[in-house]
Design a protein around this nucleic acid. Structure first.
Ligand SMILES: [Mg+2]
Length: 312
DNA sequence: GCGACAG
DNA sequence: ATCTTGTCGC
């Protein structure tokens, strides 16, 4: 997986003394403006401020933005390099914006990967008897922003009983970027999955299946990579319009609204399953709002995180 | 200025 | 997603 943090730092190091860039412009050089907030996340974790001058990254409107050592220090450093600041705004902003980034646009490569995998998604039921159903979730800790925790819970569908639970931890190299979630959570997923004794017949993922701009949300991504039936179940709507119990996006029906409680969840097929079958399995698995295997995986992740919050 | 933004 | 305890209500 690409090291998002390192790619961000490489770009920031290209900004010369006396010039600035913006979170959005760095994100664009990474390959997608939607990653602007993730650039902020990366700069906040900058391990080597002497090597990587993150104070040269400012807000898109020419205001200064944040700085862990205080905004006054950021202003001081910029002024010492010849940037003129008045009332919290950079003067003659356009003239001091660095634009000539040398980049390979890593996020475009990831988009290409999504596009390639999306062609392999199968939206018809393609399985035999479903006996073991797995749920996956990942969690994070603010105390330790570079660590991810993952859990998979496997249940016997007929008995609705847990047959296996596995947890794992892994260092993260990719922040949360809307529509690129799989690149954040796939590594920890694979780490957990390889430790399973029971191989599930169906996997439910906390996130979307085809309900995604490229029809390749994390559930579809995992399904294609492992070649197994998957379903996406999200707590919030990423995109699309609600039309009755359907979710439409650019004319296609990409998901369904499931009222498993007073507040709905958003279900979409991941891989090797149809819309209706995905909806029915998910409905059957909901004891509470969240499908039981995912709900239990989430709970285990939380326990694992708090029990290990002391060590790094 | 406001809304949108899986986790 | 994370930070956080008890408390109110079905
Ligand atoms: Mg989650």
């Amino acid at each position: 997986m690409i090291d998002f943090l390192e790619e961000t730092y490489k770009l920031v190091r290209q900004i010369p003394k006396g010039m600035v860039s913006t979170y959005g412009a760095i994100a664009e050089a990474l390959g997608d403006r939607i990653a602007a907030r993730a650039v902020g996340f990366a700069l906040n974790l900058n391990p080597n401020p002497d090597l990587t001058p993150c104070y040269r990254v400012v807000a898109g409107d020419g205001s200064i933005g944040g700085f862990s050592r205080g905004i006054d220090e950021k202003i001081r450093r910029l002024e010492s390099e010849g940037i003129r600041i008045k009332n919290g705004k950079i003067q003659e902003f356009e003239d001091v914006i660095f634009k000539d980034f040398e980049t390979w646009y890593p996020l475009r490569k990831l988009r290409g990967e999504q596009s390639r995998l999306a062609n392999k998604v199968k939206m018809e039921d393609d399985f035999e008897e479903i006996r073991y159903v797995a749920g996956f979730d990942a969690g994070y800790s603010k105390a330790n922003p570079l660590k991810s925790y993952g859990a998979i819970v496997i249940m016997d569908l007929k008995k609705m009983e847990v047959v296996e639970k596995v947890v794992a931890e892994k260092v993260i190299k990719f922040p949360y970027v809307p529509t690129y979630l799989a690149f954040r959570e796939l590594p920890i997923f694979l780490e957990v999955y390889k430790n399973l004794n029971t191989k599930p017949d169906l996997l439910l993922v906390d996130g979307n299946g085809i309900l995604h701009p490229l029809k390749l949300g994390i559930a579809s991504h995992i399904g294609v990579i492992l070649d197994m039936p998957t379903i996406g179940a999200a707590k919030k709507l990423l995109l699309g319009e609600i039309d009755g119990d359907r979710i439409r996006y650019r004319g296609d029906v990409l998901g369904k609204v499931l009222y498993s409680s007073s507040k709905p969840i958003y279900v979409s097929p991941g891989h090797r399953i149809s819309m209706n079958t995905a909806f029915e399995f998910t409905k059957k698995l909901c004891r509470y709002r969240i499908p039981e295997p995912i709900r239990l995986a989430h709970s285990i992740v939380s326990q694992s995180r708090s029990s290990r919050s002391s060590d790094l």
